[in-house]
C-alpha cells in the first residue's frame, strides 16, 4: 500500500530525514519509535504534505501512485489521514460543520453524493459512541479550548468519521489518561480492516499493548536504524535506546 524509498527531507534548510525506506502493506500496523527530535513527526508531516517540509530525495508510492506529487488535500481524499501530535485550533468553526465539510469533500473525490446534515448526524452519533465522546463536542469549535487529551480524542473521532486507508497517528497516546488511552486504542482497533493500514508513532509500550503492531521501527537521526516485531518495543521499554544507537554507530545520549 505504502512504499517509502530512500526518502530525504529538510525543513528551514536543515536536513532532517536522511534516507527512510519503509513498506507498509494493507492490514498491517507499524509502530515507529525513537528519541525526541529524531524525525518521527517530520516523517508524518512529509507523508501528509506539509508545505514547510521540503522533500530533497527519494520516492513515496501510495496505492501505486506518486504520493509526493499530490497536494495535501488530494492525499487526504485518497485516504491518507494524519492524527496530529499537536492538533490545530479553528475558533468559531464547529466540529460538526468541519467534519461534514471534510467528509463530503472526501466523498466527492470518490464520486459519491454529499450527505445532508441529518444523515450526517446519524453517522456522527454512531462514531461518537466508538470513541465515547459526548454529542456536545460536535457543537464546540474545532479543538478550541479543548484539553490536551480531548484534542487527541477529537483526532480519533475525525479518523473514525473519515475512515482512512492509511492512518498515521503521531503520539496520539501522549496526554491521554488511562481510560482515554484504552478508549482510543479500542477505537483504532475497531477501525482496522484488511484493506487499511496504521502507522503509530509512540514513545510508550503501553499503547502497543492495546494496538498490537506487526512491525516496530526505531527512527534515529532521520533514519530507520532498527526494525523488528512487537517484542522490539518491549525490549526498548526495558533497555532504552542507547544500545540500538550504538549498534547503528550513532552517538548515544543524543536526546533533544
Amino acid at each position: 500500500m505504502l512504499k517509502i524509498d530512500n526518502l530525504t527531507a529538510s525543513v528551514g534548510g536543515t536536513q532532517i530525514l536522511n534516507g527512510i525506506s519503509l513498506t507498509v502493506n494493507a492490514g498491517e500496523v507499524h509502530a515507529i519509535m525513537g528519541p525526541n527530535g529524531s524525525g518521527k513527526s517530520t516523517l508524518a508531516q512529509v507523508l501528509a504534505g506539509h508545505p514547510a517540509y521540503e522533500v530533497t530525495g527519494g520516492t513515496v508510492t501510495f496505492q501505486g501512485a506518486d504520493l509526493l506529487d499530490m497536494d495535501p488535500e488530494v492525499r487526504a481524499q485518497h485516504g491518507v489521514f494524519l492524527a496530529f501530535q499537536y492538533p490545530i485550533e479553528i475558533p468559531g468553526v464547529t466540529n460538526a460543520y468541519f467534519l461534514r465539510a471534510a467528509y463530503n469533500e472526501i466523498r466527492k473525490a470518490k464520486g459519491l453524493d454529499e450527505v445532508d446534515p441529518m444523515d450526517f448526524l446519524d453517522l456522527m452519533s454512531d462514531r461518537l459512541k466508538l470513541v465515547e465522546m459526548d454529542e456536545a463536542m460536535l457543537q464546540r469549535s474545532v479543538n478550541a479550548g479543548f484539553s490536551g487529551g480531548e484534542k487527541k480524542r477529537n483526532e480519533i473521532l475525525q479518523m473514525a468519521v473519515l475512515d482512512p486507508t492509511l492512518a498515521i497517528l503521531d503520539e496520539t497516546d501522549s496526554g491521554l489518561d488511562i481510560d482515554a488511552l484504552r478508549i482510543v486504542a479500542h477505537g483504532v482497533n475497531a477501525l482496522k480492516k484488511p484493506t487499511n493500514a496504521t502507522i503509530v508513532v509512540t514513545h510508550y509500550q503501553r499503547l502497543l499493548n492495546h494496538i498490537v503492531p506487526d512491525h516496530v521501527h526505531v527512527l534515529a537521526a532521520g533514519r530507520i536504524i532498527k526494525s523488528g516485531g512487537k517484542e522490539l518495543a518491549l525490549e526498548l521499554e526495558a533497555r532504552g535506546y542507547d544500545w540500538v544507537l550504538e549498534e547503528a554507530g550513532l552517538a548515544t545520549g543524543a536526546h533533544a
Binding site: H50, I88, L162
Partner: peptide, 28 residues
C-alpha cells in the same frame, strides 16, 4: 496560520475552503 490551513487540507478541504472556513469561524 499556514498550520491551520494545512490542518484543514489534511482533512480533504481545498485551500480556498480552508481560508473561508477559518475566516467565517472568526466572524461567526
Amino acid at each position: 496560520g499556514e498550520d491551520q490551513i494545512f490542518y484543514l487540507k489534511q482533512r480533504g478541504l481545498s485551500a480556498e475552503q480552508a481560508v473561508s472556513m477559518i475566516v467565517s469561524g472568526f466572524c461567526r
